[in-house]
């Protein structure tokens, strides 16, 4: 009975709120297990003002017929918002591709495999060079180990046109091992609706220096840090 209650509490997300830091070598698998059993603590959507999104759409709103890439699960609000601006949208759920490609028990270790990394790129980002005028990457990149991350960012660089913009989110919490994952729904040009999903393990902590190195090939990088410890990054190709 008590055992059942405990599991109910875990499934409701009522486990201990602070996840203790784990040794680097074992943290990936343990965190991955955590991802699969713990629900996000919030049950309703959060509204968030997004200066990064505002600037992103400020750059693309005056020209119609642009190609936008959305790397989250398809949603009515994002599709409607982008297409109402007169743009065309390509949507692909990159995190889902990661989950389908890499086994849960060695999620981050397997990302070092170059053949699988190429498979992810071929499945999700197989576009001609300079196809897109903007990319909404959301928080996908923070769930990738360095080897895969580099391959994906290189591919994003290839498929974006010069002067195109890319919007990505990274957790700014220095000690976080797992973070709640959200689906980002565009409410309007400056507001996002955050729909809570599961908790996921971070591949690493991303400092400003890390991000500058990661997007080193791009022209410009701009950071927006908000109270909720989500660092918004707007990058110009």
């Amino acid at each position: 009975m008590l055992f059942g209650e405990r599991w109910k509490a875990i499934f409701r997300g009522g486990g201990s709120p602070a996840t203790p830091p784990l040794p680097h070598s074992s943290r990936y698998a343990s965190a991955r297990e955590t991802r699969s059993i713990r629900a996000a603590p919030e049950s309703s959507s959060n509204v968030r003002r997004s200066p990064g999104l505002e600037q992103f759409f400020h750059m693309v709103r005056d020209t119609a017929g642009l190609w936008m890439l959305d790397l989250s699960a398809a949603s009515q609000s994002n599709v409607s918002f982008v297409t109402n601006l007169g743009h065309r949208l390509y949507t692909v759920d990159l995190v889902r591709t990661l989950d389908e490609t890499y086994p849960a028990e060695s999620f981050f270790e397997a990302q070092g495999n170059p053949r699988l990394a190429q498979q992810v790129v071929d499945q999700s980002l197989n576009f001609p060079a300079h196809q897109f005028d903007g990319a909404l990457v959301w928080d996908c990149l923070q769930y990738m180990a360095p080897a895969l991350l580099e391959t994906v960012v290189d591919r994003l660089y290839e498929i974006l046109r010069p002067n195109a913009y890319l919007l990505a989110f990274f957790s700014a919490e220095e000690r976080a091992v797992t973070v709640p994952r959200y689906l980002y729904r565009i409410a309007d040009g400056r507001t996002l609706l955050l729909v809570p999903q599961e908790h996921r393990a971070l591949s690493q902590h991303f400092t400003s220096r890390h991000l500058e190195r990661l997007f080193g090939r791009f022209q410009q990088i701009k950071f927006f840090l908000a109270r909720d410890s989500l660092r918004e990054v707007l990058v110009k190709r």
Partner: peptide
Amino acid sequence: RIVIEDGAYFKGSIDI
């Protein structure tokens, strides 16, 4: 016009 329910899987481009 397009309607996408949450939970649907879609991969591809949308041209309205």
